[in-house]
C-alpha cells in the first residue's frame, strides 16, 4: 500500500487533518456549532464563486467569505442561545450570493469549483507540508487559548461572570474554525472535514466527562477513522469518504451504546449524605 506516494501523502495529510479536526471538534460540539462546518463549506463555495467572478484566486474568495461569515455569526450569536438562528441567517444570504455570482460569471464556473474541493487520494507533497503547517498552527493557538476556550465553551454563563471576553473568544474561535475548514476543504474535501469535525468528538463525549480525555479520544477516533478508511478503500476501491464516515459512525454508535449500558448498570449518584449543621 505504501509503495504508492499518494497513499503516503494521504496517510500523512490525513493524520494531520484528523488530529486537527478531532480537537477542534470537541469545541464545535461543546459550543453547539455542529452544523457550522457544513455551513462554512457552502460559504466557501459562494466565496469561490465571487472570486471567479472578480477574477481572483478562488482560495482568496473562500477565505474572505468564510472569515466574514465567522465574524458575523460570532457578532450576532455571542449571546444567542440558539446558535442555529444566526447560522441559518448568514447561510441563506451567502447561498443566495453564491448563486448570483455563479450566474454572473461567464464560462464554466462550476468546473472551476472542482479546484477547491480536494480529494484525499490526490494530495501532493507540498500539500502534506501545508496541512501539517496548518494543523500545528491551529493546535498552538488552541493550546495557548485552552483554558479560556474550554471555560467559555462548557460554561458560557460562568465564563462571562468571571470576566472573560466571551464575544472575543466566540469570534476568535469561529475565525480559527473558518480558516481550518477553508484550508482543509481544498486538500481533503468537504465531506471529510464535516465528518471529522463532528462525529469523533460526539463519540468522545459519550465516553468521558474529562475535557482532556475528550480531546485525546476525539483525536484518536479521528485518526483511527482516517487510517482504517484509507486502508479499506485501498483494498476495496469504494470512496475513502464513505469508509471514514462509516468507521466514525460505527465508533459513535458503539460509544453511545456503551454509555447507555453503563448508565443502566451504574446506580445513580449517591443521595445527599453531606453533613452540614444547621445549628448556629
Amino acid at each position: 500500500m505504501f509503495q504508492y506516494d499518494f497513499m503516503q501523502h494521504a496517510f500523512l495529510a490525513g493524520t494531520a487533518v484528523a488530529i486537527m479536526c478531532g480537537i477542534i471538534g470537541v469545541y464545535v460540539i461543546a459550543r453547539g456549532l455542529a452544523f457550522i462546518t457544513h455551513t462554512f463549506s457552502h460559504v466557501g463555495f459562494a466565496g469561490a464563486a465571487f472570486a471567479v467572478f472578480m477574477s481572483w484566486n478562488p482560495l482568496a474568495g473562500m477565505l474572505l467569505f468564510t472569515t466574514t461569515a465567522a465574524v458575523s455569526i460570532g457578532g450576532l450569536g455571542a449571546k444567542v442561545f440558539r446558535k442555529d438562528i444566526p447560522i441559518s441567517v448568514v447561510l441563506s444570504i451567502v447561498l443566495g450570493l453564491g448563486l448570483l455570482f455563479l450566474s454572473l460569471t461567464k464560462g464554466q464556473s462550476n468546473a472551476m469549483m472542482a479546484l477547491l474541493f480536494g480529494s484525499i487520494v490526490g494530495i501532493d507533497a507540498s500539500q502534506v507540508y501545508e496541512m501539517f503547517g496548518l494543523a500545528v498552527g491551529i493546535l498552538v493557538v488552541l493550546i495557548l487559548g485552552y483554558r479560556m476556550l474550554t471555560f467559555d465553551s462548557f460554561d458560557p454563563v460562568g465564563a462571562e461572570s468571571a470576566g472573560l471576553p466571551t464575544r472575543f473568544i466566540s469570534i476568535a474561535f469561529l475565525l480559527l474554525l473558518s480558516i481550518s475548514v477553508a484550508e482543509a476543504l481544498q486538500i481533503v474535501g468537504a465531506l471529510l472535514v464535516f465528518t471529522l469535525m463532528t462525529t469523533p468528538a460526539a463519540a468522545a463525549f459519550s465516553l468521558t466527562k474529562s475535557v482532556s480525555r475528550m480531546l485525546l479520544f476525539s483525536a484518536v477516533f479521528a485518526v483511527i477513522g482516517v487510517w482504517s478508511g484509507l486502508t479499506l478503500s485501498f483494498y476495496t476501491n469504494a470512496p475513502v469518504s464513505f469508509y471514514i464516515a462509516a468507521v466514525e459512525a460505527v465508533l459513535y454508535f458503539a460509544c453511545r451504546g456503551w454509555q447507555v449500558w453503563r448508565e443502566k448498570m451504574l446506580p445513580s449518584v449517591k443521595p445527599e449524605h453531606v453533613s452540614v449543621s444547621t445549628e448556629m
Binding site: 460540539i29 474550554t150 462548557f154 460562568g158 465564563a159 463525549f205 466527562k209 474529562s210 475535557v211
Partner: peptide, 13 residues
Amino acid sequence: DTSLRAWDFVSFG
C-alpha cells in the same frame, strides 16, 4: 449532552 465532570468544571474558576 456536553456535560463534563465536576473537577474540570471547578478548575475553570
